[in-house]
Design a protein around this nucleic acid. Structure first.
Length: 568
DNA sequence: TAGCCTTTGAAGATT
DNA sequence: AATCTTCAAAGGCTA
């Protein structure tokens, strides 16, 4: 198991390296809005996965026998892939394979471009389709882009990737020569080509849509089960695992609008169905294949919905597969480091300080930077320095408001044309309080999931670990301001104007939304001078605690209810 | 260039 | 138990 995880990690890092290098060598931009590039990317990724899998499984004789089937095919690429099975390929060899994959696809596309943009009259489309339609690169013998039943079955992750990749490119090409759809409701970019419009077309996407969620070609049900059980959240759907997996795949396609999708105007009845799929561009399939935590997961600014939640879960599921295996490996390596032979291999493994949240890629990128920053922070305390070096900085999970703020910030910025975060945060704070309990509960639930996931990913982590991460200078200043204005002034204003004239209080004393507070676990309302005591997430307008209220006005029967103090 | 500002909530630290 | 402190995000501003 340990060896497998090691190999998986190595394949992982190698795949990423090869992917980027191949993209560079192709001279194409990694612009995700380019559907052509996405196809290249998928093909390259598929080739990488295949290559990596050959390396991994080369020790297994039964796998090797699977590879023998490829020899039946005349494809030179396949020949190359199996040439050195069992021997680690050099960088140049792997890159050449990838480039051949990509160039093959390009030639086919270029050829199709010419045909599609020229006069197709007189050409037997079916014949052309038969001869030029690309085959599945994993199952080259399956010449047709047919129903799932016609597909050979897959049993490994790499096979699934390849199947997706092949279907994606196949679907685009076949549609070019099949039923060319009408795109009256589509406004092309100036730079958009006919080819672009075809590949991005709803019909093409529809075709893909019909194919992709179907995982019937996945032979090994354990694989699906593994995917599902890795998610702590989706366990309730396990009984219907295939459907759930399909839904996750389906919904994940719709996470983010493509550049093209944003330019679709005036939905018509005819296009209503396709508009539902308008975002399912090729890049979506690339997104769906993003199994590397290093690849960016971009967050949308769309409102929270079930779609988003499931999509997020889907992302998490994929990432968790590798994280869980890596964690298992890491823990085993640490606890048994004395007994593991060849531990030096661990050092060559990529450092996957995987972040906790849903935007895995971005987080990882940031965290890597922050880890460097952390190590660069110089203090006189040698203990801190040594600790920083030992531990990568793992950030706190976002709370409900932070999640809300992250999502709505762009919207507020667009509306208010403000850029200063402090001002925007004030607006967001007000809007947060204007939200209904139901609306807020969505974010609380999301935050709860974040904390849960964070706990699973970093079992030993504590918020205490991050104490002192921010400079102590800031702490000193805050302490001073809190003492000066928050403490004494509040007493003065309350004493001077009383609770009935809180509108006369100065800002630091005012029980406005910035000072308010919360109901703690005991039902007491607590002042939130700068932060809150242990809360249950119920924000209410209450300037003082019950205890203080009682001490000020006598008795102990005061209770905060529906926005005002009442004697019980 | 580091820290401030500004928000709410979670959690650790302190009283 | 109650209260205080810190840190999560964000990006313009300031010393």
């Amino acid at each position: 198991m340990l060896d497998k995880v090691k190999q998986l990690c190595n394949q992982w890092s190698t795949a990423e390296l090869f992917y980027h290098r191949s993209i560079q060598r192709l001279g194409v931009h990694s612009d995700k809005s380019s559907s052509k590039t996405s196809i290249y990317s998928i093909m390259a990724l598929a080739a990488i996965a295949l290559t990596g899998e050959c390396l991994i499984t080369s020790k297994n004789s039964h796998i090797k026998s699977d590879c023998v089937d490829w020899e039946k095919n005349d494809n030179k690429i396949d020949q190359q892939l199996i040439t050195n099975v069992g021997k680690p390929k050099t960088l140049a060899e792997v890159e050449n394979i990838i480039l051949q994959f990509a160039s093959t696809v390009y030639e086919q596309q270029y050829c199709c471009d010419n045909y599609s943009s020229s006069n197709l009259k007189g050409i037997d489309k079916s014949e052309f389709k038969k001869s030029s339609s690309p085959s599945c690169i994993w199952h080259p013998n399956a010449k047709s882009y047919g129903t799932p039943n016609e597909l050979e079955q897959c049993s490994t992750a790499a096979e699934i990737i390849l199947e997706f990749a092949s279907l994606t490119s196949s679907a685009a090409l076949i549609n070019m020569h099949g039923n060319l759809p009408k795109y009256s409701n589509v406004v092309l970019d100036d730079s958009a080509t006919v080819q672009d419009s075809i590949i991005r077309s709803p019909a093409v996407l529809n075709n893909n849509y019909n194919q992709l969620p179907d995982v019937s070609f996945v032979k090994d049900s354990k694989l699906i089960d593994q995917v599902l059980t890795t998610s702590a959240i989706s366990t309730s759907n396990r009984d219907n695992s295939i459907d759930t997996f399909s839904r996750n795949l389906e919904i994940s396609q719709n996470r983010r609008k493509s550049k093209f999708a944003r330019r679709i105007e005036i939905p018509t009845l005819e296009s209503s169905k396709s508009n539902n799929l308008k975002n399912r561009g090729d890049e979506k399939y690339f997104h769906s294949l993003k199994i590397s935590p290093i690849m960016n997961f971009e967050e949308t600014a769309s409102p929270i919905s079930k779609v988003d939640s499931v999509s997020a879960i889907h992302e998490r599921v994929i990432n968790n597969i590798f994280k869980s295996q890596l964690n298992a490996f890491t823990n085993a390596a640490c606890t048994k480091s004395d007994t593991i032979v060849g531990l030096s291999e661990c050092e060559s493994l990529p450092i996957l300080d995987a972040p906790y949240d849903l935007t895995i890629g971005t987080k990882l990128k940031n965290m890597n930077l922050e880890t460097k920053n952390t190590s660069s922070i110089q203090t006189n305390d040698t203990k801190d320095i040594s600790n920083d070096k030992k531990k990568p900085h793992i950030k706190k999970p976002l709370n409900a408001f932070m999640l809300y703020m992250k999502e709505m910030r762009a919207k507020v910025v667009a509306e208010c044309t403000l850029k200063e975060s402090a001002a925007i945060n004030q607006i967001l704070g007000r809007r947060w309080h204007e939200l209904s309990r139901e609306e807020q509960s969505k974010y609380y639930e999301k935050a709860r999931q974040e904390r849960q996931l964070h706990m699973e990913l970093y079992p030993g982590w504590s918020a205490r670990d991050n104490y002192g991460y921010v400079s102590k200078k800031k702490k000193r200043k805050k302490d001073r301001s809190t003492t000066d204005s928050g403490g004494n002034n509040m007493k003065k204003c309350r004493a001077r104007f009383g609770l009935d004239q809180q509108n006369q209080w100065c800002k630091p004393c005012s029980p406005n939304l910035s000072v308010i507070s919360t109901v703690n676990n005991n039902g007491n309302v607590v002042i939130n001078s700068n932060a809150a005591a242990n809360t249950i997430g119920v924000s209410m307008l209450a300037p003082i605690t019950q205890k203080k209220m009682c001490s000020l006005y006598g008795g102990n029967e005061w209770k905060w209810s529906y926005g005002r103090w009442k004697r019980s």
